[in-house]
Design a binder for these strands. Structure first.
Lengths: 228, 228
DNA sequence: TAGAATTGGATAGTTCTACTATCCATTAAT
DNA sequence: ATTAATGGATAGTAGAACTATCCAATTCTA
């Protein structure tokens, strides 16, 4: 197929397809003549993937690129999922004053101990990604203490983790028997793990927001709180 | 205090403070002379808040503005938390073909039935915000079916909701006895609800990503899966 | 009290991201 | 044979979030 058909089938304008090719997000078409290239289903799949990551998961092209680079790599070789998570978590370094840095470091150590002690934690996997995770958690807790509750106790994180574990069970358990089909990029396990994670996010966040709102409403209206 | 001191204390450049005033995110200082204005602690608090929403919660200024507009409004009057959630959820309308729209509508009806049937659901509260929530969930499920698992069953959403409810319990339960102090913007319940929701997000998402990764690793390595 | 520094307000410019448009020599379709 | 489409290059645009410059009025500082 040629670019106009690829554009029509994917719903992405040709100018944008060319831009993605320039940016290396899509391989160039196979050149048949000097200025004729052919595109195939993999190009269409890739465009769909980019759209899902952009529009559904809301990720910037930088993350899309990092994810694409990891796709197709087998599990356990260089940890593709960890690399993708790393790209997602990367956040501009915040510079802290001396006292702030000390506070940060102390809290980070506590957070690390708590997280590493979770029953499902697998040590030493996804090393750098794990470090970034701890950074993010520490940062978020500091801000919560600053803006919401100076006494915010990180023991609460264990319950967050339990809720998250429950969600992961619902999300993954029933998919673990899927059989990867060779040549079918769609059911490649790395792809499934990364994309699943990113596409589940808006879903999970919506439920979390909803639950927080409903609980607030119930508390302020004196309604009963169903047990969890 | 004057603008340079406000800038120094908040760490926000004067040019940015002026920009925020122009944008209506901060009230102008109280004019004492033609070109002298005084700023106080509320300006400092407001700058801190904007920074938390931008840097920790990652929200655009449009959402920051919507949140600020709702702050201070009492619960139950015009539903400030619902209005803030609405701003957060607003997402560019996707135009669907006829068949897609029918598929969307059918799924949305199923999602609505499931969500409205959750034991903690409070009907008719946060009306438009709730509609946007359902839109977002429906959209996310459609994309999951498209990219991950065509048979994705929305019954799973009940488990997501249960996990989210558990997280909301940990997040809110222990704060419900907080006493609002008059004049202290920090413990205003509307503020606590909205800000809490936004600041908890990065924390929760980090745990969800981690749980999904750990579960994937455990499954692929044949490790046991602790019960949730 | 004179001169340097600061202030508020207005306006214009910058950086980054993600596209979108134009041009053109070449190739394909009718 | 003429019209349309293609690939590649280059330039332009839109929006978000700042950042810089100017200037007359004011305030600090010696």
């Amino acid at each position: 197929m040629r670019i106009s058909e690829l554009s029509r089938r994917s719903g992405v304008p040709t100018s944008t397809i060319k831009f993605y090719i320039r940016e290396g997000l899509i391989p160039a078409g196979a050149c048949s003549q000097r200025n004729q290239a052919r595109y195939d289903e993999t190009h269409l799949q890739r465009l769909d993937l980019i759209r899902a990551l952009r529009e559904v998961a809301g990720q910037p092209l930088e993350v899309v690129r990092a994810v694409i680079e990891q796709l197709g790599k087998p599990w356990g070789e260089g940890d593709p999922v960890g690399a993708a998570i790393e790209a997602i978590h990367r956040v501009p370094e915040r510079d802290r004053s001396g006292a702030e840095q000390a506070e940060y470091d102390a809290l980070r150590a506590q957070v690390a101990e708590l997280v590493n002690g979770l029953p499902w934690h697998v040590p030493d996997e996804a090393d750098r990604a794990h470090a970034l995770e701890l950074d993010r958690i520490t940062d978020a807790v500091l801000q919560l203490r600053r803006y919401i509750d100076p006494d915010f106790d990180i023991a609460v994180l264990r319950d967050f983790a339990a809720g998250a574990w429950r969600i992961s069970e619902a999300a993954i358990e029933r998919n673990e028997d899927r059989v990867p089909m060779p040549g079918d990029d769609l059911i490649d396990p790395t792809r499934t793990a990364i994309l699943g994670m990113l596409l589940l996010e808006p879903l999970v966040m919506t439920f979390v927001r909803s639950a927080l709102t409903m609980r607030s409403i119930r508390i302020s209206n004196g309604l009963p709180l169903p047990p969890s």
